[in-house]
Structure formats: structure tokens, C-alpha cells
């Protein structure tokens, strides 16, 4: 019925079939997802493109266990996320998922190191906060509070916080949306490096088609559906991108 966007030969860790999501606000029904099939392979970097309101964020929120689908099936390895309750979703997020948002969402009352430690303290095999911050190039700024860091630095702390638990899945919703060109590229470099060095399956949502160049796979969404899939012949380094 719907085109299935799969990864082909690689083993899929996250499998979605026929996902729909309907929001009801008062008397209005909004169909945010109208049937999405998707497989995510271990270690791949996927860029998800699409205009505002196409359903990108809804899809990523469901994949990350922040929300549940109205219908359809979603499994992560042997976890059935389509029917998980609040407690199981919390565990899934805690053990397997890292998020990076447009607006960083750091805890203002904790330093960079402590923001990362927030995650490492509740994970099983985490990086140390120092290691995670070193990976994003912030080893010199570890004891600064968010209000003492620039936007790009804050976003890198957020990435360090997301990857410190060695997540299986790193979900980034417009990670460069609030950043200038140069800073944005540094953040993308960080994401790309984490993906290759740690082998973390990564999904990046963006408006910016140019970012697709650094992906293993580029998906496009429109009106609640996945409408196309491309595999660039060569995955570019973020430094090679320009827009």
C-alpha cells in the first residue's frame, strides 16, 4: 500500500509499520502521520527532510518514545513500543535513546559537566562526563553554567549529554535551527563523528536539504507520509557541506 522505506541488507533495529497519529484539539482532528513504514539499521545516519507540519517531529517523537502512535506497529529490537505504557517508555528512553533539540534544553542550574552527569548517573555503561564533553570539544568549558556558554557550546553540551549514555538511537530535532552557519557546521561535525566513532544510529530532522549530503540515507516527508528515499553515492563530511 505505502512505499516502505527500508535499509535493504543491513539488520533493522527499529521497525515501524503503518504508523498513524491523530491529534484531537477540541473538535479539530489533525492527522499528523498517515501511515508510515520505516526500518532503521544499526549505525546508519538518516536525515529527515520536509516542510513544517509534514510530520517529521511527530515521527521522531514516536520513535524516541516521547509519544505513542494512534495505530500501527513499532518495535525496537524485542520491545513493542506501539503498546508500551508510560513506565516502559521511560525505560526505553533511559536505556536506548538520546535526544538533541533545537533549543538545547539544558538545566540552567547545573554546569556542563553536571548536565552530562545527569545522564551518566542513571545509565549502565556510560562514557564519563569528561569523555563525552571531550568528544564535543568542550573539555575546557566543563564547569561553566549554561548561561556562561554560547548557543553552539550549549548545543554541544546537549549532544554530549545525549551521547554520554552510549545510546542506540540519537534523535536530533533541528539541532542547528537556532545556530549560525559556522556554529551549525561544528555541531554537525560533532554529530557525524559520534555516529562514526560510536556507531550510534542517528536521525537528524532538518529543513535544510544541504545537510542531506552527510547522511547514509535521506528521507523526505510531506503531509504525514514518507514520500522519497535517496542514498547519496558518497557520504560527505560536514565540512564539505555548504548552504
Amino acid at each position: 500500500m505505502f512505499p516502505r522505506m527500508g535499509s535493504g541488507s543491513d539488520k533493522a533495529v527499529l521497525v515501524a509499520r503503518g504508523l498513524t497519529k491523530v491529534y484531537r484539539t477540541g473538535e479539530v482532528e489533525v492527522h499528523a502521520l498517515r501511515g508510515v513504514d520505516l526500518d532503521l539499521a544499526d549505525g546508519e545516519l538518516v536525515v529527515l527532510l520536509g516542510p513544517s507540519g509534514s510530520g517529521k517531529s511527530t515521527l521522531v517523537n514516536i520513535l524516541g518514545g516521547l509519544d505513542v502512535p494512534t495505530s500501527g506497529e513499532l518495535t525496537y529490537r524485542d520491545h513493542d513500543l506501539g503498546r508500551a505504557d508510560e513506565r516502559e517508555l521511560t525505560r526505553y528512553r533511559r536505556e536506548h535513546v538520546g535526544f538533541v533539540f533545537q533549543f538545547y534544553n539544558l538545566i540552567p542550574s547545573l554546569t556542563a559537566r553536571e548536565n552530562v552527569a545527569l545522564v551518566t548517573e542513571i545509565s549502565e555503561h556510560p562514557l564519563t562526563p569528561e569523555e563525552a564533553l571531550a568528544r564535543v570539544g568542550l573539555e575546557q568549558r566543563m564547569d561553566h553554567f549554561p548561561s556562561q556558554l554560547s548557543g553552539g557550546e550549549q548545543q554541544r553540551v546537549a549532544i554530549a549529554r545525549a551521547v554520554a549514555k552510549r545510546p542506540d538511537l540519537l534523535l536530533c530535532d533541528e539541532p542547528t535551527g537556532a545556530l549560525d552557519y559556522t556554529t551549525g557546521k561544528r555541531v554537525l561535525e560533532t554529530l557525524s563523528r559520534v555516529n562514526t566513532e560510536l556507531g550510534t544510529t542517528t536521525v537528524i530532522i532538518t529543513h535544510n536539504a544541504a545537510i542531506g549530503g552527510m547522511a547514509d540515507r535521506v528521507l523526505r516527508m510531506a503531509d504525514g507520509r514518507l514520500v522519497s528515499e535517496e542514498r547519496p553515492a558518497r557520504r560527505l563530511g560536514p565540512e564539505e557541506l555548504s548552504w
Binding site: L66, E86, R87, T90, R91, R93, R94, E95, V97, F99, N105, L106, I107, P108, S109, L118, V119, I122, R161, K165
Partner: peptide
């Protein structure tokens, strides 16, 4: 609200 929501996203439970 925001901080607490961030913690929830990071996998903290309601109790935490």
C-alpha cells in the same frame, strides 16, 4: 516545567 520535562526526556522517571 522545562527543566523537568528535559529530565523526563532524558529518561528520568516521574518519581525522580
Amino acid at each position: 516545567e522545562r527543566e523537568l520535562a528535559s529530565l523526563r526526556v532524558l529518561g528520568f522517571t516521574r518519581r525522580e
